[in-house]
Amino acid sequence: MRKGDSGSAEKITPLTMDVYAENVLDHYRHPRNKSQEPKTKVQDSAIIHTEENLSCGDTVTVHLAIENDRITSISWDGTGCAISQAAMSMLSEESSGKSIREMEVLMPQNVYDLLGVPIGPRRTKCALLGLHTVKNAMRKHAGKEMQRWTETMGSS
């Protein structure tokens, strides 16, 4: 189970609440910052990283440009379920302009808060595929080893 999220978030979003809330569906139908290629101006310095969820075949590729320790541009591409794609869309808005330090402290709960719907154990990996991809893109940029799913999920 997820760490440190058994408190207030569950009360605001009871499990009976529809996971396909309008705001999730809106991001799914109209994904933000989605494009097959990195944004033109950052093409030269873009960090490109792909992760997939083998159990359901969802994939996300992020293209990042980092200047002065800050994300100056982010775009992404992917296929998958509404939760994974909406979460990445929201995360791309959230990450834009953030510093490396700010990205390091980005946690699963931040993604759940963005989604605003209850994410049960069945859908955890869907919700966090984008975060996992972004985290590892940042690591790639820093020349560090890739982090495992357990680390992204906060249970390592």
């Binding site: 529809d18 996971v19 396909y20 083998l54 159990s55 359901c56 075949g57 969802d58 998958g80 379920c81 509404a82 939760i83 069945r122 859908r123 869907c126």
Partner: peptide, 28 residues
Amino acid sequence: VHPHDLTEILGRKGIALRAGHHCCMPLH
């Protein structure tokens, strides 16, 4: 429509189907 989305929406109406690769990744 991703199978996980379909079966989750169906599941919330009390309709149980399975989604995924059904332990047959080479076949998929």
